[in-house]
Design a binder for these strands. Structure first.
Lengths: 351, 351
DNA sequence: AGGTAGTGTGGGAGCGCTCCCACCAGTGAT
DNA sequence: ATCACTGGTGGGAGCGCTCCCACACTACCT
C-alpha cells in the first residue's frame, strides 16, 4: 500500500518547502529556524516550529550534506583487529567517554576497524570520499601512514597518544611519565630496592615515556637505573610472561616489578608463580591501566589508573573544535592542542 | 594553502561532469560505468575508467544518496548498554561475521547502542531521518517496540532471534530446541538421571525453545519432565548462581545441570563449589554458546555451540536481499525468510 | 524499400537542502 | 526630508549525483 516509487509527490517525508508553505514563510526562514540562527523573530520561529511538529518534519541528511559539504559524522578508527578491541578494556572505556561526549550532539559516531591490509585500503577509500567530518585515532604506532593521509586529505583528526614529543596532530594522553614515577615511588616507599620494569611496545611513544619515568624516579631516589632491570615487553600477556622469566634468570634477587600494562602484569605474575616467588612477599607487582583484570587478579593488582573515559571526552572536544574551525577557517593559531591528563595510583595487595 | 571555500571551482574533488569531459563522453555514460551497468561498450568503458584513474575520481556519497534515495549504510542495533556488548562474546562474534559478509560490499556498517532511554530516542530520530537503508536487530526482547517502528518507517530489517513462532520479520537463529535436546541427550547418555535446567530470560523466545527442548528430550527418554527441576535465570552469572542455589536446596539429589548460557553455567559452578559438589563427579554441567568462558572454565565446560559468525553472515544476506528488493518492489513473496542453523555439542570435562 | 527491434549514448530534470544576495520595513542620526 | 544602518525575510542558484526520455545507429526481418 502507498508509496509508488519515492519520486512521487506527497506521502513521502515532508520537505523544507512544505513546512514553509504550512507556516506561511519562505524556505530560507525555515532553514534558519531548523539550524538555530538567531536572526528570526520569535513569532515566526514559533509558527515554523508548530508546522514542523504538525508535519513531523525531519531534515534530509543527504540533502544537507550535499549542500553544506559536511556529513555530521566522525569516525573512531582502531588500527587493530576486532579481537584486540574487545579484549582490551582500554577501548571500551574510551568508547564510553566518546559516546557520552557526543550524546548531546548531532554528530554520528562510526566505529571503524583497520587491522588488516584489506580493511586499511577500505578505510583509505572511505576517507578519500570524505564520508566523515573528522577522525579520532587511537593506538597509533610511530610508523603508521594514517595520520599523513588524513593531513593530505585535510580531514581534522585527533590522536589518542602522540607519536612523539613533536606530534603535530592535536592529541590527548595521560601523563605516562608521571604515572610511571608514581608506580616506582610507591614501590620505593614500600621498601623495595631492586625494582625491574617490563616495558610496552617500544615503538609506542607512551611506553618510552613510562621508561623515562621509571628511570628518573630511581635516579632521583639515589639508586641509579640498572639497565639490566629493564626488559622489553609488548603489552601482551605472553610478552609479560617471557620478560619476567628473562628478568628472573638475569637477576634472581629483584624484589619488585613495574609492568607497563595490567595484561603484561598478569603474564609476569604467572612467571613469578612458576618460579615459586610469592606476591607481594617476595616480589611486589605494579601494573598500568587499572583495568578489570587488576581488580580480579589473585592477589588484586596495584595499578596506575588512567582517566580513559575522560580522555575520550577530551578528544571529542578537541575534534569538534577542529571541525568547527574548518569552515570559517578562523583563528588557526599555533596554540599547541596537546592535552595531558593526570594519573592516579590505585594501591592493592600485590605491593 | 589552496582550497578557498569549497564552493570554488577546481582544486576540490573531481566531479562526474569533469570525468565525462575528460573521457569525451556524457555524464550519463560515466554514471553507468561507475555503477557497473552492462549497457556500455567496452571501448567507452575503458576510456571512462582511464579518466577516473587519472583524475582520482571518487563519487560523492551525499549527492548519490540524495539523488538515489539511499544511503549505502546499514545499522547493527544493540538494544543493550555498551557494557553488556563488550562482556558477551556473542556480540563480538556476530560482529565478525557481519563484517566479513560486508567486506566486499559498498555498504557501511554502523554500530548503534540503544541501552538507555536517551539512546533509544536518539535512535528513533535517526531512523526517522532514514539515515540507513536497513537494520540488523540483535537480542530483542518480546515487548520491544523497535521492530514496529521499523515496520512503520518501512525500513528493511532482519532480527537475530525471532520474538515468537509467529515472527513477521525475516530472522536468523540457531536451533535452540535442537541444541537443548543435544545437551540433555548427552547428559542422559552419560548416565545422568536427575537433570535440572537453569533457563534464560523468559521473555526471550530462544530461551523458551531451550526449555521445550529440555522438556521433550526428557519425556522422550521416558523420564518425564519434573517442573521442580526447572529454575528461571536471566543469562547472567548472578542469575545462574542464585538459580543453582535454589535448585540444590529444593533437590539435593540432582546429578546434572543444563544452563541456558555459559555465563549462567559459570554462576552455577560457583554455587556448586560452595555447596561442596564436585564437577563432574557429583554434578555434571553443560552450558550454551561455547564461548571463551567455556574453554577457560575450571573444569572446561561442555557447551552447545551456535555458529554465531555464520548467523551474522546470513543476516547480512537476508538484509541485502531485502534492501535490494525495495527498489523494484519486486517478487515480494510470502516465502518465509526465517533461517535456522544447526548447533553442535562440544564435549569437555564438565560432563 | 519499409518496418521493427535492440544497443549505446547525451543531457534535462530533479532530489532537498544551504548559502547568499536582494529587498523591505523600521529607527535613529543628519 | 535624506541618508545610513539594522534586524527580518524571500527566493534564486547551486551542491553532484541518478533517472529516464529522446535520439542516434545498427542489424535483422518482411
Amino acid at each position: 500500500m502507498a508509496s509508488h516509487g519515492a519520486r512521487g509527490r506527497s506521502g513521502g517525508r515532508p520537505t523544507l518547502e512544505e513546512v514553509a508553505a504550512r507556516a506561511g514563510v519562505g524556505r530560507g526562514t525555515v532553514s534558519r529556524v531548523i539550524n538555530g540562527s538567531p536572526r528570526v523573530s520569535d513569532a515566526t520561529r514559533a509558527a515554523v516550529e508548530a508546522a514542523v511538529a504538525e508535519l513531523g518534519y525531519v531534515p534530509n541528511t543527504a540533502a544537507r550534506a550535499l549542500a553544506a559539504n559536511r556529513t555530521d559524522a566522525i569516525a573512531l578508527v582502531v588500527p587493530e583487529p576486532e579481537t584486540r578491541f574487545f579484549a582490551e578494556p582500554y577501548f571500551s572505556d574510551m568508547l564510553k567517554g566518546v559516546g557520552a561526549a557526543l550524546g548531546d550532539t548531532e554528530m554520528q559516531l562510526l566505529l571503524i576497524f583497520a587491522g588488516s591490509d584489506r580493511e586499511r585500503r577500505r578505510l583509505a577509500q572511505y576517507l578519500a570520499a570524505h564520508r566523515v567530518d573528522g577522525v579520532l585515532l587511537v593506538s597509533v604506532h610511530a610508523d603508521d601512514p594514517l595520520p599523513d593521509l588524513l593531513a593530505q586529505l585535510e580531514i581534522p583528526a585527533v590522536i589518542s597518544g602522540p607519536r612523539s614529543s613533536a606530534e603535530t596532530l592535536p592529541s590527548v594522553d595521560s601523563d605516562n611519565y608521571g604515572g610511571a614515577r608514581q608506580a616506582v615511588e610507591h614501590l620505593l616507599s614500600r621498601g623495595r630496592r631492586r625494582i625491574a620494569h617490563i616495558t610496552g611496545r617500544l615503538d609506542v611513544y607512551g611506553a618510552q615515556r613510562r621508561i623515562d619515568g621509571y628511570r628518573e624516579a630511581l635516579i632521583d631516589a639515589g639508586l641509579g637505573a640498572d639497565e639490566a632491570l629493564i626488559e622489553p615487553g609488548d603489552f601482551t600477556e605472553e610478552g609479560g610472561h617471557r620478560a619476567m622469566a628473562a628478568l628472573l634468570e638475569r637477576d634472581p634477587g629483584l624484589d619488585a616489578v613495574f609492568a607497563a600494562s595490567d595484561v603484561t602484569a598478569a603474564g609476569a605474575r604467572q612467571a613469578l608463580r612458576e618460579a615459586g616467588r610469592r606476591i607481594p612477599d617476595d616480589v611486589a607487582l605494579v601494573g598500568y591501566d587499572d583495568s578489570a583484570i587488576a581488580r580480579h587478579m589473585e592477589p588484586p593488582l596495584t595499578s596506575v589508573r588512567q582517566p580513559i573515559e575522560e580522555m575520550g571526552r577530551r578528544m571529542i572536544d578537541l575534534l569538534l573544535t577542529e571541525v568547527a574551525d574548518r569552515r570559517p577557517l578562523a583563528s588557526r593559531g599555533l596554540e599547541r592542542r596537546q592535552v595531558v591528563l593526570a594519573t592516579e595510583l590505585v594501591s592493592r595487595s600485590s605491593s
